[in-house]
Amino acid sequence: MSTSGSSAGPRKLRVATTSLAGCFGCHMSFLDIDEYLFDLLDRIEFDRSPLTDLKHCGPCDVGLIEGGVCNAENVHVLREFRKNCKTLVAVGACAINGGLPAQRNHLELGACLQEVYAFRDGLSGSGIPNDPELPLLIDQVHPIHEIVRVDYFLPGCPPSGAAFRAFLTDLIAGRTPRLDYPAIRYD
């Protein structure tokens, strides 16, 4: 993927995206900007993202983080993004408040795993998975601002395509992003 903008026009903003403890719903909603994506691609290019399948993040202008932090790998990815992105954005309910995965926070983690892998009907009986490849779970799910500094928040579950569009338009124009009343939503 080329990193140099074309000779004409302003340099493209380099944008990285990832989903931590999220459902990819925010990424799907991002794609809901439909044909505006073409305009956007004149102004931005993607670095690490599920859209490019790049596995690591280089220096970027903007990092969009979907999902909260539920395991050790999430912490590493989040720190990689913070280190490389000038502007880091928490996108969606899970990145902002832990969201659905954080609904386990009032349960003891061991009991939670047993409920899912040991006590349910119809299980193979192999118990709680402990493959060394699996990232270590954290006792509670946390929003990303509890781990790294976050510059902007884009709420919603997911934020609407219109909210993504308004937010990115402001960001590309060099303005502090600000959503109008109906675009600020937590559900």
């Binding site: 902002i96 408040n97 928040f153 884009l154 959503l179 600020i184 937590y186």
Partner: peptide, 27 residues
């Protein structure tokens, strides 16, 4: 514990509405 997406009061809730009006982007 305010997980609005699963709350039946969402859209009718005064706390949420105040947070929207005060442009609360995160807690």
């Amino acid at each position: 514990n305010h997980f609005c997406p699963s709350c039946e009061k969402s859209g009718h809730c005064q706390l949420q509405a105040q947070a929207y009006e005060h442009e609360m982007m995160s807690a």
